[in-house]
């Protein structure tokens, strides 16, 4: 302590060794000293707090709460935007699906129509060819029948001639015709 040495400080509250007589706090001699420096220190503290520290801390706190509020609002906005985007995405997805189904249906219908046309064409061709073939066959058959008739007539004439008769053309034709129908 500062009172280590045996100096004698002139004071009513100190003994010859510099020790306290009674409580130093109650020594009237020092009370003006304490009050004076207390007022100085209090004034300094009050000045520092009220002029510099407290306004600054208040500003920082206000700024912080403002920032937090703003950030929360921004987050809320972004959230609603995200929800909107999701809705738009879902809608687009549904639309795309519907469109795809439509395209598929259209393509199917088109293909079906083309197929029908082609089938009809093919049927017609087949029918035509069949008819052609039938006429050709009929012609061939007619030709064959005619040839056979002629051959039969000629043969019959020759046979009649060979047998020594005179062949009446009319009779022979009638006979052959009757046989051919046979």
């Amino acid at each position: 302590m500062a009172t280590d040495t045996h100096e004698t400080v002139a004071s009513a509250c100190l003994d010859s060794h510099g020790g306290a007589i009674g409580m130093p706090q109650l020594c009237g001699e020092w009370i003006p000293h304490q009050i004076f420096w207390l007022l100085v220190a209090l004034a300094a503290t009050f000045f520092v707090m009220s002029r510099i520290a407290l306004p600054r801390i208040a500003a920082v706190l206000a700024e912080r709460s403002g920032t937090i509020t703003n950030d929360l609002a921004a987050a809320e906005e972004l959230k609603s935007k995200a929800a909107e985007a999701e809705a738009a995405y879902d809608k687009a997805l549904v639309d795309a699906r519907a469109q795809a189904q439509q395209i598929v249906a259209e393509a199917k219908a088109e293909i079906q129509a083309e197929l029908d046309v082609e089938l009809a064409k093919a049927d017609a061709q087949i029918a035509e060819k069949a008819a052609e073939s039938e006429t050709a066959i009929a012609e061939i058959r007619d030709g064959a029948v005619k040839s056979v008739t002629e051959v039969a007539k000629a043969t019959a004439k020759e046979l009649v001639a060979a047998m020594g008769g005179t062949a009446d053309a009319k009779t022979i034709t009638a006979a052959v015709s009757a046989r051919m129908k046979g």
């Binding site: 302590m1 500062a2 009172t3 100096e7 400080v9 002139a10 004071s11 509250c13 100190l14 510099g18 020790g19 306290a20 009674g22 409580m23 130093p24 706090q25 001699e29 020092w30 000293h33 304490q34």
Partner: peptide
């Protein structure tokens, strides 16, 4: 109680 005695910072004079 000696710790409560005010002592002059400069010199040993009275407070």
């Amino acid at each position: 109680l000696d710790q409560f005695i005010p002592t002059s910072l400069f010199g040993n004079g009275a407070v």
